[in-house]
């Protein structure tokens, strides 16, 4: 059986989705973009939830920050997940808040033994509050703090200790490999695919002189698709794959055709 293929839910494409112009198998949303909404957007979200299964990709958990888990914030997210029958909740293996301030961006963590244990404990607490698995994503990092191990070793160790699920972002592997001078295939060779609960493929900006940026604003690059094809048989069957897109939704036909193209490939 083929993996379900989903798409990022942003307000920009809510109407075409509701009108049936575009029919992914599921929609991925960031709870932080939808929590607390009333009015027309609450109604549209409810209607979308009647038509589509949702998955959630969080932005504010900040699992990698030195502070303990924000329990109250997590309870708000849990309520949202419950309200919309969302089983899969993923977050970034990064930190996004520190010193009592949200920065609304995923920032890199040091891959050290101490941070590993600290994050593993936070994962345990988060899973207890959420009453579901926490699925952690390999993020793009543009600088690497002083570390004891590689990103891949860190992910493997963290999964072993915390039993978290893994979100494999195929594009992020490519971006990190290019930016930090290694081959994405080397990363994939030892990746613990058996613990992958969810997959992302996105796009990146290669127009900057010295660095490739994770951008989610254009069609998926052929390198990502190539990587995805190479590893797809390693990924457990039925694991959802989400095409990430956060901006530039026009023209819609192009998105739909891209989506259909990826579906055919898989």
């Amino acid at each position: 059986m083929k993996s379900p293929l989903g798409y990022t839910l942003r307000r920009d494409i809510a109407d075409p989705l509701l009108a049936g112009h575009f029919a992914p198998d599921f929609l991925e949303l960031a709870p932080e973009n939808w929590i607390g909404l009333g009015g027309i957007w609450k109604r549209k979200l409810d209607q979308l939830n009647e038509q589509f299964r949702f998955t959630a990709h969080g932005l504010s958990l900040s699992i990698g920050s030195p502070e303990p888990v924000n329990i109250e914030g997590l309870k708000v997210i849990k309520q949202f997940l419950d309200d919309y029958n969302i089983d899969i909740y993923s977050e970034h293996l990064a930190f996004s808040s520190i010193d009592n301030a949200h920065m609304y961006e995923s920032m890199p963590i040091p891959f050290t033994i101490e941070s590993l244990n600290h994050i593993a404990e936070k994962v345990r607490v988060a899973q207890e509050v959420l009453e579901r698995s926490l699925v952690l994503e390999n993020v793009c990092y543009y600088i690497l703090p002083e570390s004891d191990m590689s990103e891949l070793q860190y992910i493997k160790e963290l999964q072993q200790i915390s039993k978290c699920g893994l979100l494999l972002d195929v594009s992020n592997v490519y971006v990190n490999a290019k930016n930090h001078g290694y081959c994405s295939q080397t990363f994939f060779r030892d990746f613990p695919f058996e613990h992958v609960h969810y997959v992302h493929v996105g796009s990146y900006d290669t127009n900057q002189p010295s660095v490739i940026f994770d951008s989610h604003d254009r069609a998926i690059d052929k390198n990502t698709l190539y990587d995805l094809l190479k590893i797809k048989d390693e990924i457990p069957s039925n694991v959802p794959i989400c095409l990430e897109r956060e901006s530039n939704f026009e023209p819609l036909d192009e998105l739909v055709n891209e989506f259909k193209g990826v579906r055919k490939l898989l």
């Binding site: 030195p66 520190i98 010193d99 040091p110 050290t112 941070s115 703090p145």
Partner: peptide
């Protein structure tokens, strides 16, 4: 517990941003 070194790095990194 996160190490003091990691903690300081993260705080300083965020502060510099």
């Amino acid at each position: 517990m996160i190490s003091e070194k990691d903690h300081i790095w993260q705080k300083q990194f965020a502060r510099n941003i």
